[in-house]
């Protein structure tokens, strides 16, 4: 697939999805901070979850779509799929980093510890390792096709790895009783919080779409410039 100059030019204009995403994020967090009452037991620390949980959702979504796009590329060899995989993985790493940073910030006051080797925490950490490796791998291969090929393979194997890490960490925890920590679920959420929560999920998903669109536009420009330079 070759890119017409119009796609390169359009990427410089502000993407309407990006504007919408920014508005949604601002609205969601205005509501989360000022118009949603703090949780009775956890206090203001609970508000971190309005970032943490939607970011985790976006991270899993991003990596799932990366694996799917990679598998699709192996069959269709369409460059757009590879550019999408590249973009989605990069955005996914950013959101996973946000999950790994906000998690301990919440865990310290609520669980009394920055980190615990809980199944979900460990899984997120390894997901982060796999996809940072994915980005390093992409950076180390020059040929566009061999890059797409190798990263598609890594994306697929990464998706296969997730159940195994989950299983082994789960076994590790159940065979080794650990000090009992507060479960993250807590009491069921009151509707006012739930609404804010969904708004944050929606805003983050929109943000994901906007960031991936911007990143894909960049990748398309870069490839177009590369093609033009090669003549």
């Amino acid at each position: 697939m070759t890119d017409s100059p119009s796609t390169a030019a359009s990427s410089r204009r502000l993407d309407p999805v990006a504007i919408l995403a920014a508005l949604a994020v601002v609205a969601a967090y205005a509501r989360a901070i000022w118009f949603t009452p703090p949780e009775r037991v956890q206090g203001f620390a609970q508000k971190i979850l309005y970032v943490h949980a939607p970011a985790a959702w976006v991270a899993f979504l991003a990596f799932g779509l990366t694996a799917l796009a990679g598998a699709g590329w192996l069959f269709l060899k369409d460059e757009r799929l590879d550019r999408f995989a590249e973009s989605s993985a990069e955005v996914g790493v950013v959101f996973t980093t946000a999950v790994l940073v906000t998690g301990p910030l919440w865990g310290r006051p609520i669980w009394g510890t920055w980190w615990t080797w809980d199944a979900r925490l460990t899984l997120t950490l390894f997901l982060w390792f796999v996809y940072v490796g994915y980005l390093v791998l992409r950076g180390a291969i020059d040929g566009r096709e061999s890059r797409a090929r190798a990263s598609a393979v890594l994306g697929i194997l990464g998706a296969l790895l997730i159940p195994f890490i989950h299983l082994s960490v789960y076994l590790f925890r159940t065979l080794h009783p650990m000090p009992v920590v507060a479960r993250p679920e807590g009491p069921t959420m009151p509707p006012v919080m739930l609404k804010t929560f969904f708004l944050c999920f929606f805003a983050f998903t929109l943000l994901y779409v906007a960031l991936v669109r911007a990143r894909v536009a960049y990748a398309a420009d870069r490839d177009a410039v590369e093609d033009a330079a090669r003549g």
Binding site: F126, V130, L157
Partner: peptide
């Protein structure tokens, strides 16, 4: 690349 996969 390989070490995260070695964990399980």
């Amino acid at each position: 690349l390989a070490l995260p996969f070695f964990v399980p």
